[in-house]
Amino acid sequence: MESMLFESRDLARTEEFLNRAYTKMQIGGRAADVRTRISRAAAESISIDRIEIGFEMSYDADPLGKVCLCEVASGRITDHATDGWVDEFRPGDLVSFAPADRPFAGKIRRAAYTITMFDPALLTRVTGAGRKDDAAVRLLSHRPHSRTAAHQLSKTIAYLDQVLPNPAVKASPLVLASVSQLLASSVLAAFPNTAFPNTAMTDGADGRDARPPTVRRAVAFIESNLDQAITIADIATAAGVTVRAVQTAFQRHLGTTPLAHLRRLRLAEVRSELQGADPSACTVAEVAARWGFHHHGRMAAAYLDVYGELPSTTLAR
């Protein structure tokens, strides 16, 4: 379901909408108190919903089939039970609401909150796990490592909530890939998970693989695929090492990350295209979107830092 807005004071209508928008569920509450408002920003498999439940609503739901993050702004969500645990969420909490394949139940007590959902396969793809019969990546806890980790993820979600409605995001495969990678990487950085156990990046084979040949293979792959929606996992596979090894190799030998190097090369493509463009028939935003830059302000700042002028100046000249 793409971007939408739903408002209702009818319990049956609210239940019907929730079944259509999320999963099969039963809800309960006083019919006279019902007040529901839900707005959605969405692109491809990612959706961010801002929800206001202005009454005491119970819920008993089937599995969502997606990773579901919940950030509470006001009110409470109590007696939330899934996967063998029960918890209560208050303002400021950002949690993984339920595993994608588990049912859940609880009570919403006049709460405003954000629900962010996406395909679980995105976690596996961004890490490179799931290849060679490896298990899919799973979150190991419904709460982040720390308040700091939760705050960083909250900022990412707020940023994506502004970006997803932009038509340029939906029109560009590179932009969609960038947005998806950002969300998945932020989730993995915030929550304990099966992809990155708490060990040093340079330990064992990963450290031994972080050598110049690894960098050369990775750079060659990046340069050959600048116009493709590649991930850090794709880069690691092309280099024949793990994600951690290719990250360590880039930090050790180039002082950067694989994805930062990819963005720098795409920025050079933006400059090259602007230098040869007709200002009357082309805009900076159009060129930036073609090369995967979905935030014009950040792209312009990076461009200024590298080339000493704004992209609009390059185009005008």
Rank of each mutant, 00 (worst) to 15 (best):
I48V: 10
I48N: 02
D49C: 10
D49A: 05
D49G: 07
D49R: 03
R50V: 05
R50S: 14
I51Y: 02
I51A: 11
E52T: 12
I53M: 12
I53Y: 03
I53C: 08
G54Q: 04
G54I: 02
G54A: 10
G54V: 06
F55R: 00
F55L: 02
E56F: 11
E56M: 13
E56P: 06
E56A: 07
E56N: 14
E56C: 09
M57F: 07
M57C: 10
M57R: 03
S58R: 04
Y59A: 00
Y59G: 10
D60T: 11
D60A: 04
D60N: 13
D60I: 05
A61R: 01
D62T: 13
D62G: 10
D62S: 15
D62F: 13
D62M: 15
P63S: 14
P63T: 12
P63Q: 11
L64N: 02
G65S: 08
K66C: 12
V67C: 08
V67M: 11
V67D: 01
V67T: 15
C68G: 06
C68F: 06
C68I: 15
C68H: 07
L69G: 01
C70I: 13
C70Q: 10
C70S: 14
C70R: 07
E71C: 13
E71L: 15
E71N: 12
V72C: 09
V72I: 15
V72W: 01
A73D: 07
A73L: 13
A73F: 13
A73T: 09
A73Q: 12
S74P: 01
S74I: 06
S74L: 01
G75S: 06
G75Y: 02
R76Q: 11
R76Y: 08
R76G: 05
R76W: 03
T78V: 12
T78M: 11
D79Q: 13
D79R: 11
D79K: 11
D79H: 08
